[in-house]
Design a protein around this nucleic acid. Sequence first.
DNA 1: TATTGACCTCGAGCGCGCTCGAAGTTGTAG
DNA 2: CTACAACTTCGAGCGCGCTCGAGGTCAATA
Lengths: 135, 135
Amino acid sequence: MNRQLSIQAVSRLTGLSRHTLRYYEREGLMLDPIVRASSGHRRYSTDDLGWLEMVTCLRATGMPIRHIRRFAELCRQGEDTVPQRIELLESHRAELLRHMRELEGYLEMIARKIDYYEGEQRRASVAAVPDSVAV
Amino acid sequence: MNRQLSIQAVSRLTGLSRHTLRYYEREGLMLDPIVRASSGHRRYSTDDLGWLEMVTCLRATGMPIRHIRRFAELCRQGEDTVPQRIELLESHRAELLRHMRELEGYLEMIARKIDYYEGEQRRASVAAVPDSVAV
DNA sequence: TATTGACCTCGAGCGCGCTCGAAGTTGTAG
DNA sequence: CTACAACTTCGAGCGCGCTCGAGGTCAATA
């Protein structure tokens, strides 16, 4: 079967800590509670892994935990919620685009500051050279 | 003179709350402690305003408070620290670029998910139409 | 049988960046 | 003289997203 990954394996594969994986499950971010071995140990499926990739994507783009929980709930509720899921993702995408454009502006500002400092540095080193050496 | 802006005015101009402006000063993010009126009230100069723009830029691009403090300290220490300031900004820029590229990847992932859902939606609506109506 | 190590749950703790509000001062308008 | 608004300092509190560790279970190995 497919349900074979230990929490440690998933941690290695996703880069999320074991603590974080348990935390995400507790917070209802997983599609369903993770299946357990008879020992009680979590056994992740490759589907779980795929879903975690989506969760990681949403987190890394700044979506708060509670929105991801909402998204997971919609997914659990079945096909009828597809329009709401689209809406949720569309609005997140819009926000992300806004953020990315903002970052581009700030990136330019930082570049200009660096350029300015580099000018300063050149001027300083020129000033430091005595005429007798410079000529 | 130039030192004329109340904290309220600066709050309006920067979008930072009055609480945050005091917090930034306490945390040593300002180039120098803000000049006070005889009443003890803060009077910001246009230079302060310009510096706050830089601080906002660094914050918005994810630089932690302690690094901005470090940057402010370097600026206070005079021209000798220009190389270190360049280094600090360069490394921040590199990190920011990395982050922006990451976001682009995630943006695509979100777009693909939306496309997928839109496909689902179309399929569902087709299936819901009885043949007698559809033809 | 004893040890080891990976896992479990649960509740508490932490670092960050604000955010708030109590209590007091100052300056102006009525 | 009073009332009010805008400020001051100071220390506490909050929301978020983890992060940690104590105490216990389970299965395989020496």
